[in-house]
């Protein structure tokens, strides 16, 4: 079983955490995520123009690039992580940095560094040829996003060629503080799970353990990003401690969500 499949085969829902590569002491932060109990880690590839992100992750992108983070650095971080941990690692970002040296190069680097999956925000199924075939050839999951605007007519296109898990973006909007209504999440997850056998993880606007627990009662995974990235902004080089504490609180809530239901 792949690392991603194992993470979603655990007897409890998965906590998926996001941080930006090169923002703060990334190796220490990744270790803190694992120690806190994250089941899947998304590592953001910084980009100058993060169109789908709100202020917190935009700022993290700029801090990472300002610190001189390169694509080579990101793969070094990923390879270092893989040498220390078995937790699945997913790269998340935008098309231009991923394709700058061609999709084959990118997929090959992912494979070498032990990256399990890729989420590319701005390559929809219509343009799959730019990235999908290269990833599939190397056995790297292509994780697609479904959104509140993905209706029944749209969903089959998204699912075709998706692997790893399906990421449900619970708000029509950018990453950050806006939260979806719980009822709308439940309805959407039910609809998605009826259409696919892939695990469904829900993200965007999830910040607190209670909220994460509520979502984990219906979804296979819960994604938390901006709240962790804000801790890195606030604590800088000392962020690992607070990141671990928040991750542990979230993990406890998510892992036990169904026991309490």
């Amino acid at each position: 079983m792949s690392r991603l499949a194992s993470a979603f085969a655990k007897p409890h829902p998965a906590l998926v955490t996001f941080v930006t590569a090169g923002d703060g002491d990334t190796a220490a932060i990744l270790d803190a995520l694992v120690a806190g109990g994250a089941d899947v880690i998304e590592l953001g590839m910084p980009f100058t123009d993060p169109m789908a992100d709100g202020p917190a992750i935009q700022a993290a992108n700029l801090r990472a690039l300002g610190a001189g983070t390169t694509t080579a650095d990101i793969f070094r971080i990923a390879a270092g992580f893989r040498a220390r941990h078995a937790t699945p690692l997913v790269l998340m970002g935008y098309a231009n940095p991923m394709l700058a040296r061609g999709s084959d190069w990118f997929a090959q680097q992912c494979a070498k560094a032990g990256v399990d999956g890729v989420i590319c925000v701005d390559i929809p199924p219509e343009e799959d040829g730019d990235l999908g075939p290269a990833l599939r050839a190397r056995g790297i999951a292509l994780i697609r996003l479904a959104t509140p605007t993905s209706d029944a007519a749209r969903l089959p296109a998204i699912l075709e060629g998706s692997s790893g898990f399906l990421y449900y973006v619970s708000v029509a909007g950018i990453t950050g503080k806006q939260q979806a209504v719980q009822a709308s999440i439940e309805e959407a997850v039910a609809r998605l799970k009826a259409a696919t056998a892939l695990p469904v993880a829900v993200g965007f606007g999830v910040r607190h353990p209670e909220q994460a627990a509520a979502i984990a009662r219906v979804a296979d995974g819960v994604v938390v990003g901006s709240a962790l990235v804000e801790l890195v902004a606030q604590h800088g080089a000392e962020a690992a401690g607070p990141v671990r504490a928040l991750t542990a609180a979230l993990a406890q809530a998510v892992h036990r969500a169904r026991a309490h239901a």
Partner: peptide
């Protein structure tokens, strides 16, 4: 019909915007 001018153009947007 896919919005391509040779190798250029296309529709590289976040999934939320695709239906629009």
């Amino acid at each position: 019909e896919r919005g391509h001018f040779g190798a250029f153009g296309g529709r590289y947007v976040a999934e939320t915007l695709m239906p629009l």
